[in-house]
Amino acid sequence: MSGILVVQEARKDGNTRAFQETLAAGRVLAGYTGLEIEAAGVGDSNSNLFAEFIGPPPAAAHAIEHPLLSRYTSDGYVLAFEQLIRKLQPAYAVFPHSYQARDFVPRLATRFSQALISDVTAIESGPAFVRQLFQGKMNAVYRHPGGGPCFVSIQSGAFRPDGTSGGVTTIDHFTPEIDAAQIRTRPGDPFRASAQTVDLGSAQRIVGVGRGIKDAANLPLVQDLASALGAELAASRPICDNGWLPMERQVGSSGQTVAPKLYVAAGISGAIQHLVGIKGSQCIVAINKDRDAPIFEVADYGIAGDLFEVLPALTAAVKKAK
């Protein structure tokens, strides 16, 4: 095909938002290269793997089918995609930057003596691929020198699926050769560590706290602000890792995704893993002593200052305004 292969992650619920975004990224790439897009994913004939495409459908879709792929394993997926890619010989293979893709695509790319350009946020002419460095403090522009497929994974929320849906495409069924002995890992069923009792997803106001708070003993400063605002308390990963707040209050790629009217980020630098969780917020306020912290790139209002002075002042100002 020598085109662009856009990969869909197998989920029971059919096409995911991530796939539509990956497809949108594929179209940007197609715009720069003039190449045709095809889609691929693991799923049997009964799954609604390619049931819906937002925007123009791909030229073809390849449904990878094998009983040994019914449950995700890196070994199984590497074998399956390796065989499909050798058969199709795409110039680009584009994946969603999901936990699953992170688990097997670097290994897959290595089989082609390639390196994945991971977590891409933008595609420019060239084509050039933009991704973040230093937890969002810098960007890097990557190029592929050619000679073999270029593997790319796309950051969640970076490309917007656009257009009408309803287009259909021809589905090609592909059965890879996999032997049970080649699959070395035995995955168990997914489970939740504890019943989620805090639903941050529906909170209207949230105060999120990050490393800047320095010590668990300082948490009352954010708790006071949260109660003055009538807000839920949330945290970035390091706070929960330290056990200062329970895991169920974690916001970001490994925690909850929130969409409040107001999100106050206190002492949160704005690593991408946190930002993907707060993108849906209507209004973001950032308080951070580092004026160059990436959180200010997404904030509507910012105060570059000392958390320990600003938080009490803000709590007092909120109380006064009521």
Binding site: N139, A140, P145, G148, C150
Partner: peptide, 9 residues
Amino acid sequence: AVILDQVTL
């Protein structure tokens, strides 16, 4: 396999 071409803000 890939080239870091440029670092930008």
